[in-house]
Design a protein around this nucleic acid. Sequence first.
DNA 1: ATATAATATTCGGAAATCCGAATATAGTGT
DNA 2: ACACTATATTCGGATTTCCGAATATTATAT
Lengths: 103, 103
Amino acid sequence: MLNPTQFCRCLGDDIRMALVCLLREHGEVCVCELTAALAAPQPTVSRHLAQLRECGLVIARREGTWMHYRLHPELPVWAKESIDTLAATAATHLDLQPLAKAC
Amino acid sequence: MLNPTQFCRCLGDDIRMALVCLLREHGEVCVCELTAALAAPQPTVSRHLAQLRECGLVIARREGTWMHYRLHPELPVWAKESIDTLAATAATHLDLQPLAKAC
DNA sequence: ATATAATATTCGGAAATCCGAATATAGTGT
DNA sequence: ACACTATATTCGGATTTCCGAATATTATAT
């Protein structure tokens, strides 16, 4: 599993931080909604989601052509607590569009 | 002041995470002790301390030729909480020599 | 003034990170 | 089988990060 340094490296990017914010606030979210909320190119969002997956911070569930992401349900306590603290603060710093189905 | 993403970027390095661990556990510590505890070259430690300073996570106090560092006393609550959670966990992952005056 | 100790900074260069553009894959519907 | 949609991956290249080596700075002591 990942250690605190890797965890920080993983959250040390505005796009990934924003993704974690959104997933924390909304539970399970479709990629198209994340892409719309970030107003970022789809491949960029996909690459960052892959990185969050490889770090074990999120998991994906396929439903037809859609992919739904959510925070990993079995994060260690320290990671969950840190995400709560950091993402709650970050949400006020980043400007995220409200969620809306875009596909 | 720094935002959560910058904060994470700043802690996303083993040496800087270890420095924060040591300062959190011991309060104010001399650079020579930090260098010894990390078993890292002095310029490396100095550069990372400068980075922590520029991010506002630590402050320095000169005493003769010595420099003493400690966590910034007026960190925002979210930063203080995150440091507590992350550094406490990191301390068990990193192998830090016990503190000892080396100068 | 000089020597020495503790710490900081500068200067390449190597490695890692991030992005845009293009392409690939997986699933659905006809 | 083909077209289409949603998402993922690959491939350069630009930028950033990190390090070691050398050098500079600041303060003390003689």
